[in-house]
Design a protein around this nucleic acid. Sequence first.
DNA 1: TATTGTTATACTCTATAACTATA
DNA 2: TATAGTTATAGAGTATAACAATA
Lengths: 162, 162
Amino acid sequence: MTANTLGKRTGRKAAAEKTEPARFGTLDGMIGFHLRLAQNASFKAFKRHTGEAKLRPGWFAMLSLIHENPGITPMALSRASGRDKSTLTPVLRDLQRLKLIARETVASDKRSYTLSLTPLGETKFATLAEHAAAHDRELDEIVGDRKDELIRLLKRIHSVLD
Amino acid sequence: MTANTLGKRTGRKAAAEKTEPARFGTLDGMIGFHLRLAQNASFKAFKRHTGEAKLRPGWFAMLSLIHENPGITPMALSRASGRDKSTLTPVLRDLQRLKLIARETVASDKRSYTLSLTPLGETKFATLAEHAAAHDRELDEIVGDRKDELIRLLKRIHSVLD
DNA sequence: TATTGTTATACTCTATAACTATA
DNA sequence: TATAGTTATAGAGTATAACAATA
């Protein structure tokens, strides 16, 4: 057994893997498989970038959508983020506990309420956006000039399948 | 509030959403965000295709890799599937309990063992592969002739980041 | 009757750390 | 010392179903 002389380097796999890679077969031509691998790798990289800033992965999209759509309701947020409404409750509770978002009752519908970022939330969002941007720049470098093409395809997958 | 007259159609969002969509802002240009949405949509579609066949999402890649690489060890499987070795243990236990895979001790290293599909495992794999292929054909239709390009980009994201 | 938001519950995928038995 | 595999534990993301309040 060829020993691996390299230690683990903060979440990335050892560079010089001596064992020959496995064959992927039909898996190699499957979009779904590579989608999962890429998303997982991106997710881990995102945590590397934002972990220090105490940014929970699910938070950034929420803060960003509320920032862009002040007065948005949880239901609209659910649709925009592609997550079930029930998954929003704990996230919004956490964000409010941290005073990053504010809820306001809406006269026209007493069941619902509107969401907006507090000044503190805006400040925090700006910081988080920098980290997220750094992450996405890393992705940008990888895909190069095919970025628009890639996003277009990913959007289409989401909109057609979901 | 404009009422939505359409019922839910097995996991897909209502077609004619009357509420105007939210603005995405910078999120719209972020690869990571769309990667998550696309992967999630693909995952849900995969479950729609394979749910009847009792195919747990994580199983197909495992069976496929063992099928393609008979005699592969758990560690090699871990690297190939992009999952930590500790996450393989319960999956392999389940697959063995169902008599789909077989373990064999390897003389050269008593710590490890090799994996292969049983005849039953091969049969089951063939069935599952059909369902998975149906799913991927759905993805193929969506991306059209950009499939190779897409897979190339996804592979690069995975290999560079992980 | 239908919808909004909450709660309860559960499932999947994933990771880290500590452990054993080897190497 | 380092590696293979297991176990224990935890966290993130997600979903469904039932519920109360309101539309």
